[in-house]
């Protein structure tokens, strides 16, 4: 049993916090790219693509992230694919984030007023031109507040990577706790760190939401 909390412990926690941020960025970028494809699949003219994307969303949104983590770390190892905790955590977060962001963004694409589609069609733009030049720029504006809001979920959910042994904030807290057994103190510190990562994002999301409401486009 070793002593009281000292600067080295805090440095170790800081290191863990950096990995929490790192994993969040991986999840946001990977999940964002995949989620964009899911959103496009959900509004695609092809029935098969729509069905595929919808099935993916239903399956992932019906499965806990924890089970996805276990599946990609222990499950893949058991059938002969050994992957590192970072790869397992990154892949699980990407799979998870893609389903949720894909669904959020589908809503945003569909929230672009119908006449915009029709006008773009009337200008003889092709489907991809319509998407890129007319719909997506407007959808991105609608999508910003909920996406920032979802980033809070991403940061919080990286805590589950601790179960596959990835040393992010929660895991580094567990490791320190194993050596000094002050669980309440350590988890309180960790909670405060998570709060200071997430709360600014929550505030930003709410502010963006409010300004978006004020600047409602004239075209409805």
């Amino acid at each position: 049993m070793g002593g009281s909390l000292n600067i080295n412990h805090l440095l170790f926690l800081g290191h863990g916090a950096l990995w929490t941020i790192g994993l969040s960025v991986i999840a946001l970028v990977g999940g964002g790219l995949a989620g964009f494809l899911v959103a496009l699949g959900r509004v695609s003219p092809s029935r098969t693509l729509r069905l595929l994307a919808a099935t993916y969303v239903q399956l992932i949104q019906g499965t806990p992230l924890l089970v996805i983590m276990f599946l990609s770390f222990f499950g893949l190892a058991a059938i002969g694919f050994n992957i590192s905790p970072l790869a397992a955590a990154g892949a699980s977060m990407t799979i998870f984030v893609a389903a949720y962001l894909g669904e959020i963004w589908r809503g945003c694409i569909e929230a672009v007023p119908r006449p915009q589609w029709e006008a773009a069609e009337g200008l003889a733009l092709s489907r991809s031109q319509r998407m890129v030049k007319v719909i997506l720029p407007q959808a991105i504006r609608i999508a910003t507040p909920p996406t920032v809001g979802f980033m809070v979920q991403i940061v919080k959910n990286t805590s589950l990577a601790s179960v596959v042994g990835f040393v992010e904030l929660t895991r580094s807290g567990q490791i320190i706790n194993n050596s000094m057994f002050e669980p309440f103190l350590i988890y309180s510190i960790i909670a405060v760190v998570y709060f200071s990562l997430c709360y600014p994002l929550s505030r930003l999301s709410r502010r963006l939401e409010r300004t978006a409401l004020q600047k409602k486009p004239a075209l409805a």
Partner: peptide, 22 residues
């Protein structure tokens, strides 16, 4: 509301678990 919504459930569970026992 803000405290709960901006911290992970896993940490909340540990806090309740160790908080009650302490």
């Amino acid at each position: 509301v803000e405290g709960i919504r901006n911290t992970p459930l896993l940490v909340q569970i540990f806090l309740v678990y160790f908080g009650l026992s302490s």
